[in-house]
Design a protein around this nucleic acid. Structure first.
Length: 377
DNA sequence: AACTAGGCT
DNA sequence: GTATAAGCCTAGTTG
């Protein structure tokens, strides 16, 4: 395809640049060979030194730290990005187009995850690129059948709303009841300034911690993910928990309950057993604790969208609509819609998705339409 | 088959 | 002293 060839020529250019920088050819796709080139030949020293079982890691986080130390680094980062998009999407997807239908069909696996999410395979259509110019181009290849349109409806901040409900944290609940920007408000709470004075940097840090909380992030993790120092990161987290004591309680109570019962569960009672929660091995136990913290949140979001899918399908059938529910991406549903049904489908998703579950905070969706998955408005 | 890396929510 | 952010799927390399 066109895109593959343009990706291919960009990669060839980068390949030459990389060999020129280094002085010889090698397999850039081999982490082992790349590691030898960067750390043995060029003597580069990553700030956070080692990693991986077999040697020095060359993953993107490490290369980012080395960006200014040697010109080859930027070429490698760009090469890696294009290589991923080409091999996983641009080259692979066309081969999976069904001969009879002329279309791409994924498998949605209903029992493959520990939290209750769906997964998607052959191809995975839940991880199509969305960032960057090339990423967007790939998504634009996902189109509705001739004459039809795509409609996408995604839940706004569903995990944080689930967390607000589960934890019953007063501040988090109030934020969503007032329909405020949750990251901006967290920044305001943690930095002690009015919402209107929150800067882009402050909001970005708050966004990282809002997601980090759901995953049981540590001070170290926050430091790695931001440009904060270790001390700033620790202070940031402890301040967050002072402002959101309900969230802190949720984390402590969930760990305790998981240890006592051996499992955690979602709002609808979906369980995940976590035997490692009482492991004598601290690393294994702490990993188990993070799973315990995350599962009720991620799993409740999965419960919500599954209820919405059933309710929507039932209503679409009752009305005899031709619209097809085509994709689910954890907090998003994508429909293929005949133009004549677009107005009613917008009303239906707006009616049914937010009502899927009654929580302590409102559920909200954003709706977009367009000719393909990359250009929706 | 294991490992590394990286795409998404 | 060591590791440190949840859940997935796929591709390329290595042995």
């Amino acid at each position: 395809m066109e895109m593959s060839t343009s990706l291919g020529s960009d990669m060839l250019r980068l390949e030459k640049d990389i060999y020129n920088c280094v002085g010889h050819q090698f397999n850039i796709n081999s982490p082992q060979q790349l590691s030898a080139v960067l750390f043995n030949e060029l003597k580069l020293k990553p700030a956070s030194a080692r990693k991986t079982q077999s040697g020095y890691s060359t993953d993107a986080a490490i290369l980012e730290e080395l960006k200014d130390d040697h010109p080859v680094i930027r070429f490698v980062l760009e090469y890696r990005q294009l290589a991923k998009l080409k091999s996983t999407y641009s080259d692979a997807l066309p081969l999976l187009i069904n001969r009879k239908t002329g279309r791409l069909h994924t498998s949605f696996n209903q029992t493959g995850t520990t939290t209750g999410r769906l997964s998607s395979s052959q191809p995975n259509l839940q991880n199509l690129p969305i960032r960057g110019e090339t990423g967007s181009k790939i998504r634009q290849a996902i189109i509705a059948q001739p004459g039809w349109l795509l409609l996408s409806a995604d839940y706004s901040q569903i995990d944080l709303r689930a967390l607000a409900h589960i934890s019953q944290d007063a501040e988090l609940i109030a934020t969503f009841q007032r329909d405020e920007d949750v990251h901006t408000h967290t920044a305001s709470e943690v930095f002690g300034v009015p919402d209107a004075e929150v800067t882009t940097k402050m909001r970005r840090a708050a966004k990282t911690i809002n997601f980090g909380v759901i995953y049981g992030m540590s001070g170290y993790g926050l430091q790695q993910a931001t440009d904060l120092t270790r001390e700033e990161a620790e202070l940031f987290i402890s301040t967050y928990f002072k402002r959101y004591p309900g969230v802190k309680n949720y984390i402590d109570n969930t760990k305790r309950q998981a240890a006592a019962l051996g499992y955690v569960q979602t709002v609808l009672g979906r369980r995940r057993y976590i035997p490692e929660i009482n492991s004598a091995n601290r690393l294994a136990r702490e990993a188990a604790e993070r799973m315990a913290i995350n599962m009720p949140v991620q799993g409740t979001s999965a419960d919500i969208i599954k209820v919405a899918m059933v309710n929507l399908h039932r209503e679409m059938a009752r009305r005899g609509l031709k619209t097809m529910m085509t994709l689910q991406v954890h907090d998003e549903l994508v429909f293929e819609v005949p133009p004549a049904e677009m107005d009613i489908m917008k009303l239906l998703v707006q009616d049914i998705m937010p009502a899927a579950m009654k929580l302590s905070v409102p559920l909200k969706i954003d709706v977009k339409t367009g000719p393909n998955w990359g250009e929706m408005a």
